[in-house]
Design a protein around this nucleic acid. Structure first.
Length: 548
RNA sequence: GCGCCUGUAGCUCAGUCGGAUAGAGCGACGGAUUCCUAAUCCGUAGGCCGGGGGUUCGAGUCCUCCCAGGCGCACCA
């Protein structure tokens, strides 16, 4: 990474000048205007204000002591910026490193990092996954891929409630569907799940078991709970499969009760003087920890709320030894997060253990109307239909494209109708073009293993070529930002930009020319672009086709 | 009423730590193909970065107030 190298140089020089400044706090960036060189730093401006010096003066003395083995020119400009103009060799070294290692992430992926557990989707098995879950599934899956690529130990987990009221309602609704399948006139209960996804399951049970569950009793309830759970989880897994999302682990809530984790949490909270009783309910002293209000842990009827087992669940996560537990939640869980933070703080969890990424909702506009989705009312667009209509690549790309905390407006009609104009194809096409060049040149074997011997990268020098090399060099930095930010959308922005520069280059210059030396150098550049594009598409879970 | 998120081109959105002249895609208009895939490229038009105040050498970015939208403020999950 060129930027890191410049920071190193600057840090060394500043040390000579007796400034105390660690490398991380040195700011080096790419100026928007080419006039200002390839990279620029504002260190002189920052240090000058602190010590009441002239920024330009200081910049000049910094520049004087920097050797010129890496730079063709270093200038002082404006109020005191230091502008670095790179030597060609410096850039080419970056490209040749990429090619010889075939690892677009380079050194940042090498050293060992900590462990992170990522929990997402975690929809209860009471209905099919919708577009909202779809966004979260993609975000979580891409984040997991990012952290894996960076060398973290990653585990993805899906948490679901397999008992309690929601499951009772599911069982009851399913039973009604079963009765209807047997030809009886039965109404779905008011609080039941009205969607027709349970009809089919009811019919299956009716045809397999006949009328043996005609009356509602404990045996019937248990049976339909079991069937409902199995069927729904099965469907959820299938849907996620369509999206290419696989979880490392599936965690059922009942396990917490079986292992007395819930009891454990209650007594731990009690030990910390974190609870009190009021109105027959058990409350968490959340306000003491910064939450707006106290929260109920156990209802007056003795049932735990959603909060209590979730605290127990996170105690379990902590016990499992992860450094961090990241949870993806929808915007409607904001209050829950405040309660969780309060509880975990009472329990003296390590402060950075519980990490939350709250994502805003997806609105789906269809025929000019914005549809709201409600699982309970049975009105929603399912993840399944979305993927079946648009394809995994398009869906994953769209769902990754916006930063999580922004609303995502998904124009279904447009995405379907104009799918050929879709930006995902723009990226894939860049990859395809490169593959096609290697086919054409009869250098298919070069694509596998590109030998740098005899290739003179200094043949590269056109603006587009230089820009591409710089862009490739920036890839690892972008990945670190995306992971640190929990923001897969950085991949999309970067990718579109890289593809754009490549397409420009491709249109302006021929890779395969009469000049063998130029051809070799440009093939090398193409290989570099291809390595990065492939890695990027891979991380997004989007295919990188060789032909389109 | 209080809290979280959002407000940038006609539309959908980027813009890591405050940096020099604010970007992309779509849409509109005008062009490019005897040549490695035109699912591409080039050009034009389009902006008080929601509004006011502040912090400083410098603000789309930080602080504050206001306005608009989404979500929340359950003994639901």
């Amino acid at each position: 990474m060129i930027k890191q190298e410049i920071k190193r140089v600057l840090a060394k020089r500043l040390e000579q000048l007796n400034f105390e400044l660690d490398r991380a706090s040195i700011d080096v960036e790419e100026p928007s205007n080419d006039e200002f060189g390839d990279f620029a730093s504002n260190v002189a401006l920052e240090l000058a204000t602190e010590d009441d010096l002239s920024p330009r003066e200081l910049a000049r003395s910094i520049v004087e002591g920097i050797g010129n083995e890496l730079f063709s020119r270093i200038t002082v400009a404006g109020p005191g910026f230091i502008n670095f103009h790179l030597k060609r060799d410096f850039l080419m070294k970056s490209l040749s490193q990429l090619l010889s290692s075939s690892d677009p992430l380079g050194e940042i992926s090498a050293n060992e990092k900590g462990s992170i557990q990522i929990e997402f989707v975690s929809s209860n098995p009471t209905g099919p996954l919708t577009v909202g879950h779809c966004r979260q599934a993609v975000l979580g899956d891409v984040l997991a891929a990012l952290y894996r690529a960076l060398g973290y130990e990653v585990e993805t987990e899906y948490y679901f409630n397999d008992e309690g009221r929601q499951m009772d309602i599911l069982a009851r609704t399913l039973w009604v569907r079963y009765k209807q399948a047997l030809g009886e006139e039965v109404e779905i209960p008011d609080d039941g799940y009205k969607g027709d996804y349970l009809v089919e399951i009811g019919e299956d049970v009716a045809s397999e078991r006949g009328d043996r569950y005609s009356s509602w009793n404990d045996e019937t309830a248990d049976f339909f709970k079991k069937v409902g759970l199995e069927e729904m989880i099965g469907r959820i897994k299938k849907d996620l499969d369509l999206l290419g999302v696989k979880f490392d682990s599936w965690f059922r809530e009942s396990k917490l009760h079986e292992e007395d984790k819930v009891e454990e949490v209650l007594s731990a909270l009690d030990e910390q003087d974190g609870t009190y009783k009021e109105g027959g309910a058990l409350w968490l002293k959340a306000e003491e920890e910064g939450a707006p209000k106290d929260a109920v842990l156990v209802k007056s009827n003795g049932d735990p709320t959603y909060l209590l087992p979730d605290i127990a669940y996170h105690l379990d996560k902590l016990d499992r030894g992860y450094d961090r537990a990241l949870v993806l939640l929808g915007a409607d869980h904001q209050r829950h997060v405040e309660n969780m933070k309060a509880a975990l703080s009472k329990l003296e969890f390590p402060p950075d253990f519980y990490q939350v990424l709250i994502n805003q909702f997806v609105s789906l506009s269809k025929e000019g109307e914005v549809k709201r989705m409600s699982t309970r009312a049975g009105e929603f667009v399912t993840l399944k239909s979305l993927v079946e209509d648009l394809g995994k690549d398009v869906v994953r790309y769209f769902m990754s494209a916006r930063k999580p905390e922004s609303h995502l407006e998904f124009d279904y009609e447009l995405a379907k109708k104009e799918s050929m104009d879709n930006p995902v194809y723009y990226l894939q096409y860049a990859h395809t073009r490169i593959a096609s060049i290697f086919e054409k040149s009869g250098y298919v074997e070069l694509e596998e293993d590109f030998p740098l011997e005899g290739v003179d990268l200094n043949e590269l020098g056109k603006d587009e070529e230089i820009e591409l090399i710089k862009k490739l060099d920036k890839f690892p930095e972008m990945i670190e930002i995306a992971a640190g930010d929990y923001g897969p959308h950085h991949l999309v922005s970067y990718g579109e930009n890289l593809a754009a520069i490549f397409h420009q280059f491709y249109n302006k210059y021929k890779v395969l020319t009469d000049d063998e030396k130029i051809s070799q150098a440009r093939l090398a550049l193409c290989k570099g672009v291809q390595l990065v594009l492939k890695e990027l598409l891979n991380l997004l879970g989007v295919s990188a086709p060789r032909k389109m």
